[in-house]
Design a protein around this nucleic acid. Sequence first.
DNA 1: ATCTTGATGTCGAAA
DNA 2: TTTCGACGTCAAGAT
Lengths: 250, 250
Amino acid sequence: MTATEDRRSARADTLVDPAPEQARARVAEGIEAGAMITVFGRCTVEYDGRASSTLGPGDRHVMLKPDGSILVHTDEGQQPVNWQPPGCTQEAELDDGALRIRSRRSTPEERLDVRFERVTQVSAFVVDDGSELAISGTEEDLRERILDDPELLEVGFTPLATERQTTAGAIDIYGEDRSSRTVAVELKRKRVGPDAVGQLGRYVDALQRDLHDDAEIRGLLVAPSVTDRARELLERNGLEFVSLTPEPSE
Amino acid sequence: MTATEDRRSARADTLVDPAPEQARARVAEGIEAGAMITVFGRCTVEYDGRASSTLGPGDRHVMLKPDGSILVHTDEGQQPVNWQPPGCTQEAELDDGALRIRSRRSTPEERLDVRFERVTQVSAFVVDDGSELAISGTEEDLRERILDDPELLEVGFTPLATERQTTAGAIDIYGEDRSSRTVAVELKRKRVGPDAVGQLGRYVDALQRDLHDDAEIRGLLVAPSVTDRARELLERNGLEFVSLTPEPSE
DNA sequence: ATCTTGATGTCGAAA
DNA sequence: TTTCGACGTCAAGAT
């Protein structure tokens, strides 16, 4: 690849302190070209849809992505203060001499308007991203770890199915213990509270009903740890707990 | 305010296609100065902490905020592909001639490394954001609506307390019906699934135990609507449902 | 399309 | 600090 091609693949077209019409044109071009666009400046924001919100004047960073999403970030917080999900239609226009960026979607009907009192910078980036994220340490990893070595749960445990359906939803691992008693296993990748115990209880109850069988069904919660209240609920409901992390500890 | 002061309040210091050392210096200055920093370029990302991930080479947008959070965005998705929450310590350094941005925190121990093969643009923004976000359409709105007019739930309903504590957590609204039977009300601002029914059931059970009383306690779920499975669970557990939205419909 | 559940969920409040 | 529930949760998979 030549240096020229190399630069073209990720060029930045940037305007500093542009006039409103300049800024509007650059944003509109970027939307048209499928670029990733950033606008920094003093603005107000209005949102209306699943909820409603207004945000008075302040300096914010606005990002428009080619997939139709838009993010408004202030100087604090990991989360955007306002946003729209992918699939929205974006427009840049002049509103009484000021840059306004609008995003809309339907189902549900939602609208986001960002009006700039002043634009400090506008950039448009052409993006070339081939790679996908590879992640580990998930609930799926925990499941694989157990299926590779079922006796991590207890001696004689035998998995029979994963994602086994019940009328209350799917059981993560369905199996038998050494005495051929049915075991429903609920997996959580990290420390769990009472909600997970409730989930496991519903599965055990549903199995009990579905199987039309008087035999005891065991419910086993597998996670790195549980909260105190979750442990109380486990005992009260006759459910069990095994401590296990998604990946072997060092 | 003069034009000069006006510009100082939101100046952008931007470098286009900087050499790695130039980029490192600008990022380091920005961190020191408490600026909001953006870096666009071709990079790889590694994360290790609550989970682990790796991301191969591609063009991405990286934002560092003065509160210690960092976000890595690709050209698609509302969510960052990698991130760190507020409160992390950030560094910019040269790694074998390339810009590397690192973010760390403890409790839990987490680390994010972004290594740039090429930097297309670096910007540092000094932010002045005065305004706070005002939202409506929340669960709090729903509570106020009911307390203003309790008979929206049913004729003769009387609220006695909000956030009443039980051993299973706090009940949104605790009250009595026209026959002086105790009523536990659980509020949800939007359509609910089985999890909310489980929550309400736990509260009613806890109340039954806490009150040492044989009188029937009613459990009332208030939301715009419920899923089919949630309705089944309601009936099975002898719980009730009233349809109500956080704001009066038009 | 709706429904269900996981997530490096994040965020805020209370104990 | 831990625990708990809300969130315009988001995102992915199943129906």
